[in-house]
């Protein structure tokens, strides 16, 4: 619970650190990409903190190369 709250606070801090800078420079595209990535990774972090079993990309990589080596 506390860790999720901490992640949300950190995400908010990151957002309000970068937002004024990007706004001042009028970089709309940068602002959008930044926000999308931030929301995505915050969601991932919150899921991880709530002990949700996230898929491990290494499993897929391992599966892919095992398919080729034929084992």
């Amino acid at each position: 619970m506390w860790s999720m709250l901490a992640i949300l606070i950190i995400a908010a801090v990151i957002f309000f650190m970068e937002f004024p800078l990007l706004k001042k420079k009028k970089k709309k595209k940068d602002l959008w990409f930044f926000s999308i990535l931030l929301v995505f990774f915050t969601a991932v972090s919150v899921l991880e903190a709530s002990e949700f079993p996230l898929p491990n990309p290494l499993d897929y990589i391992q599966g892919f190369y095992q398919f080729f080596s034929g084992s």
Binding site: L21, V44, S45
Partner: peptide, 19 residues
């Protein structure tokens, strides 16, 4: 993503790398 500056991405990507 054809952005002008890489700096805004540093902190969000950091959260992803830690997870």
């Amino acid at each position: 993503l054809t952005m002008d500056d890489h700096r805004p991405l540093l902190l969000p990507l950091g959260m992803g790398i830690i997870v």
